[in-house]
Design a protein around this nucleic acid. Sequence first.
DNA 1: GAGTATAGTAAACGATCGTTTACTTGTCAA
DNA 2: TTGACAAGTAAACGATCGTTTACTATACTC
Lengths: 200, 200
Amino acid sequence: MSDTREKILLTSLDLFARKGYGATSVSDIAGALGITKGALYRHFASKRAIFDAILARMEQRDGEQARAHDLPEGASEADGPAYEAAAAADIVAFSKSMFRYWTEDPFAAPFRRMLTLEQYQNPEMGQLYQQYLAAGPMGYVADLFRARGLSDPERRAAAFYGPMFLLYSVYDGAEDKGAVTSLLDEHLDRTQKEMEGEGK
Amino acid sequence: MSDTREKILLTSLDLFARKGYGATSVSDIAGALGITKGALYRHFASKRAIFDAILARMEQRDGEQARAHDLPEGASEADGPAYEAAAAADIVAFSKSMFRYWTEDPFAAPFRRMLTLEQYQNPEMGQLYQQYLAAGPMGYVADLFRARGLSDPERRAAAFYGPMFLLYSVYDGAEDKGAVTSLLDEHLDRTQKEMEGEGK
DNA sequence: GAGTATAGTAAACGATCGTTTACTTGTCAA
DNA sequence: TTGACAAGTAAACGATCGTTTACTATACTC
């Protein structure tokens, strides 16, 4: 059936993640798939439509993931912190799965890199980058800390999420990816102990 | 004289930092400067030559800065940690000036964003990105911690540099840049106290 | 004042861009 | 068996790409 459409989507995502949207040509995409440009236009109306479909796919996946963890969708933008106090172990476990998701998931990992490349193109891309990868997650963690009644939630959030965010980038350029994952685990395990030693 | 060459360099850097090298056209650059493409080719042999000149300029600035702080140049790649034990206050002060440098310096700030956009293009750009902004600084801090005889230098380095690295990105998308700088200061001041409370 | 670089314009080069068109297949229902 | 539709190819479209060429104006040297 139309799994060609799916191949176009994933191949484009990989190219956008390496060269950026503007520097990737339709010929590049078609060439990587072994089809002609004409065939590609049977499945997408334009190059931009492929990009939009990728964004829509990520939005859909994000919604599903939020529901799976029964967290309020778009939690990072909530003004009133309505989260119940989450156990330190839960936050840490969630963070580990998030790290795996953004580094190893066949869709999320290239999407993260693509967004990294598009973030300065226009304000909307900048907002998406912040929401998915930078200020968004940091604010979300800050809200969790606030809900637990911890002091300095924002400083703590930066201390918690900063190393994760750094290790995304280090992971991308690392030969020994396992060492990076271990470093993340050390950070999270140490943080968990500190939080448990502090109580609510 | 040839301050046109300088204008071309800086204008190109700004465009490369927003759209990426591949998506920036020579017409874009010439148009932004109010000159024609032909005039631009009087000062640079090719579009790539502009990019190379930007890289060379950064390398030169990096060397000067390293010498000004009398640190061994390319310290992050040194295998034998030959650093003397640096005082916590020195490390923190140095970090604050580094943050200002990469967020506000008229050359370094767009260069950081440009490198962010080019990091996945080819291995060399990836290495430069790691060296200037990710694994490089983290490894440098780890070496400093190791020289002070601290345990877990890599985990501590991630805890120290991670929030800085995160706040570079948050700073880029923030409306209230001052709040981000304050958050960095909170992080660094708190870390300094922790380090001083631990001694060598 | 004649000669010569230097810094600029305007136009054109071939290549490639995103997109469209005309045409060829293969598949499956009527 | 025919007709229709879906998925593909090949070629061409005008626009723009990086680069080159021919020419002009300005300034400095002999």
